[in-house]
Amino acid sequence: MRRPLFALCLLASPAGAAPLLEMPALASEIGGRGESPSSLRLPEGPYDEGMIALREVKGTVEQRAYRLQGRLTTLQLYEPLAAQIAAQGYDLVFSCQADACGGFDFRYGMEVLPEPQMHVDLGDYRYLLAEKPGGKEVIALLVSRTADLGFVQVSSVSPVTARPLTITTPKAPEPEPAKGFDAAFATRGAQVLEDLVFASGSGALEPADYASLRDLAAWLIANPDRKVTLVGHTDASGALAPNVALSKKRAGSVRAALIALGAAGGQIDAQGAGYLAPRADNDSPEGRTRNRRVEVMLTPVP
Results as ranks from 00 to 15, higher is better:
L213F: 04
L81Q: 04
A236L: 03
S144C: 05
F185G: 07
L26W: 11
L11I: 04
R41I: 05
A53M: 09
D281S: 08
R255I: 02
R163D: 06
A130T: 00
P300M: 02
Q153V: 01
G135D: 13
A100G: 09
R64I: 03
S158H: 03
L298Q: 09
A65C: 10
L258M: 05
P207Y: 14
L8M: 15
S95I: 07
A270C: 06
R41S: 15
I167N: 09
K171L: 14
D48Y: 11
A18R: 00
E295Y: 11
T169W: 01
D215S: 15
K136N: 14
A241I: 07
L298Y: 05
G266C: 07
D195F: 12
L5K: 06
L205E: 03
L10N: 10
S247P: 00
A7Q: 13
E137D: 07
L77M: 10
M51T: 15
A217K: 08
R71Q: 15
Q267M: 03
A83H: 12
E295F: 08
A222F: 03
D99E: 15
G103D: 10
A178V: 02
S28W: 00
A100F: 10
E295L: 11
G201Q: 05
E44T: 14
L128Y: 01
A18V: 05
P164Q: 05
E206H: 13
G274I: 05
M110Q: 12
I259Q: 08
L276T: 10
R3W: 09
L230A: 06
A270D: 02
D105M: 12
T234C: 11
Y125W: 07
P285S: 09
A270N: 03
A264C: 07
K179G: 04
A256Q: 14
G32L: 04
D91T: 12
V228D: 00
K248W: 10
E111R: 11
T168N: 06
A239D: 15
V154I: 14
I268T: 00
E62Y: 11
M118H: 01
G150K: 02
P278Q: 02
A186V: 05
V301E: 12
D215F: 03
N282D: 10
Y125H: 02
A178K: 15
G59I: 04
S36C: 15
A18M: 04
K227G: 05
P4Q: 12
P302R: 11
K249F: 00
